[in-house]
Write a protein that binds this DNA or RNA. Structure first.
Lengths: 345, 345
DNA sequence: AATGCAAATGCAAGCGCTTACATTTTTTGA
DNA sequence: TCAAAAAATGTAAGCGCTTGCATTTGCATT
């Protein structure tokens, strides 16, 4: 026998059992349900565990227990701080409960998202967090078939009694639009992320549209440019929008990243923000306070969503608790990028 | 028997084997080594797989094969875009190779980092990426014992022949400092992250110190304030530093986030940047171009590091390739926050 | 047609753990 | 003090897959 590789073999639960002179069942129980075991046994087993430097093999545990203690999150991108923070909070709760997080990003691509979801399930995720409602029904069917608890985040309402934790994108966008209207804005344009398979983006546009009739405006007349989420795209979209005549007095953006791009573009065009044109964002990430003028935007409770998503998931898996729908508050954060229009044409 | 739960049972490899009239070994081979199997068999098996909607159970696979096809990354924080981007690139390569990423963040806390590392290993990560060299020797011993390949990222040099992919923090910081010195700066202060158990932070300070003698300055005389990485902390640290007399003409920062805080603080104090005081960053994240004045900083190849880390890890695990040490280039990005000092006192 | 060899397939033993059920030990209370 | 109940422990059957080795099949060669 090869001594070297022999030495490399990791101790198993069997080894611990033999050494501690108990059965493997007792070792397992000591590790998983310490109070089902006499104190004397527990001490002896734990001592052996330490002595052998034993660590349980999670694959074996998962296979036997039919549970991985792993929870997945499939997010659109890690590059936007808003998701990064949600994740950080999500992870914190999981770790505090002895669970592990699996992360994957889909780059806003439905096909990649589907692959990632299936992959996570194949890897035995006990539960999963997804962003937004929009995806093929068969994915939901698949998830139900596998009986994997799902939490839809970033939206306050979901269909079919699915759990969700988020906020009302329509209402939030509407609220911001109403504020702008009350300041006197009448020519409003919108830079949105692509709305196909992105209900959050769609809802935000819809929210602004919903506010327009209050000011006697035609909701359908609002110019909307759709693009990808990036600063550069925001810049380009802004240029497109400002080519119109008459120009809008306010350009609302689907998120802060686009808004930062818009501000940059405006400044490059020699326009004063908010003097010549107002710009608003959505999310309230750190960027919003850094850019100059600071962004008037909607504050989204990212950390809270991450934390609650983890708690709900754990509750559903461990305590078999019922699905819940949590709708959090958002609020408009007023900074400098939105002001009354100079000419109220 | 409960029909419902019976129906819920997922098909196993056994089921596929029975249905396709082959042994389980053949199904396994069809899935893992398709070219070891006749085309006829392969087609029949794959057809059955589809018909039964079979998905392999990763825990069982991992247990039997002694490999999880999972790779871990333990990073200080997800909230800094620089790590988020590295991760995104890391994941992309893994996914393209049929592997999965496990992520954990340590909040710059060595104890949490250690726990996370052990946890990832317990979960059977086939390889792991860590940021920087600084950690207890026993962690490295543990990793060696388990024979888990490790890649140290964010630094171009590592001890004991360990793999690394990164850049020379000392040289990069020195280069930036030299540029500042050539502009005429003599009173330089530094805002650093805590340097305990953070070799990158230490190296950056050391790099600036190394540049000072060139200008006939005393390296040890440079004021250094250590703090946590956050905009707020950068602001506070800047205030502390500017309380000195004479004030520095240049405040260099350990990363862009701190630098943005410093710029904010300067502006709140009514100081013009770079007129009254120059400020530099490190990392070159998006923030650096958004803040006004835009940051002069060191560009760090985050995406490339993430990509290479994944490739190296896969190579070490799958092809048993030897550890490599990759030292990437960095370069100074000149923007507006660094200029010649007004008074060359 | 017989032979030899390589390729394809099958057999069955685990991988390291959990857990239903059986057995033993301890506790309880009359 | 002793039987019954409760608590602790043990037994052993898997969980769903991979893989070394044995067997069968197909094909080229003689």
């Amino acid at each position: 026998m090869d001594t070297k590789s022999y030495n490399r073999e990791l101790p198993t639960l069997q080894d611990v059992a033999r050494e501690a002179r108990v059965s493997t069942a007792t070792v397992s129980r000591t590790l998983n349900f310490p109070n089902q075991v006499t104190e004397a046994t527990r001490l002896r087993v734990m001592e052996t565990v330490r002595a052998l430097n034993y660590t349980p093999n999670f694959s074996a545990r998962a296979l036997a227990a039919r549970r991985t203690n792993t929870y997945g999150a499939v997010i659109p991108t890690m590059e936007n701080a808003i998701f990064a923070r949600g994740l950080e909070a999500f992870q914190k709760v999981l770790v505090a409960n002895g669970a592990t997080m699996l992360v994957a990003s889909s780059s806003y691509d439905p096909q990649i998202e589907e692959d990632q979801i299936r992959n996570m399930i194949a890897r035995g995720a006990d539960g999963i967090v997804l962003i937004g409602n929009d995806r093929k029904p068969e994915i939901y069917r698949f998830l139900e078939e596998r009986q994997v608890p799902v939490i839809i985040a970033w939206t306050g309402s979901s269909l079919a009694g699915r759990s969700c934790v988020g906020f009302d994108n329509v209402a939030a966008a509407r609220q911001l639009a109403l504020k702008a209207i009350s300041l006197g804005h009448r020519r409003i344009a919108f830079i949105s992320a692509y709305t196909v398979s992105n209900d959050r983006a769609r809802d935000r546009v819809a929210g602004v549209r919903a506010a327009l009739p209050d000011a006697g405006l035609d909701a359908d007349a609002m110019p909307v440019v759709e693009t990808k989420y990036s600063i550069q795209c925001g810049q380009d979209a802004f240029a497109t929008i400002m080519a119109a005549d008459p120009k809008p007095t306010l350009v609302m953006c689907g998120n802060d990243v686009l808004a930062v791009g818009a501000i940059k573009a405006a400044q490059e065009m020699g326009l004063d923000v908010p003097g010549d044109v107002s710009i608003t964002g959505f999310d309230d990430i750190e960027l919003a306070t850094i850019v100059s003028p600071a962004l008037t935007t909607v504050h989204v409770p990212h950390r809270q969503m991450g934390r609650l998503a983890a708690e709900m998931l754990l509750a559903e898996v461990r305590d078999k608790s019922e699905p819940r729908q949590i709708n959090l508050e958002t609020h408009v954060v007023e900074r400098q990028s939105l002001a009354a229009p100079r000419d109220q044409g």
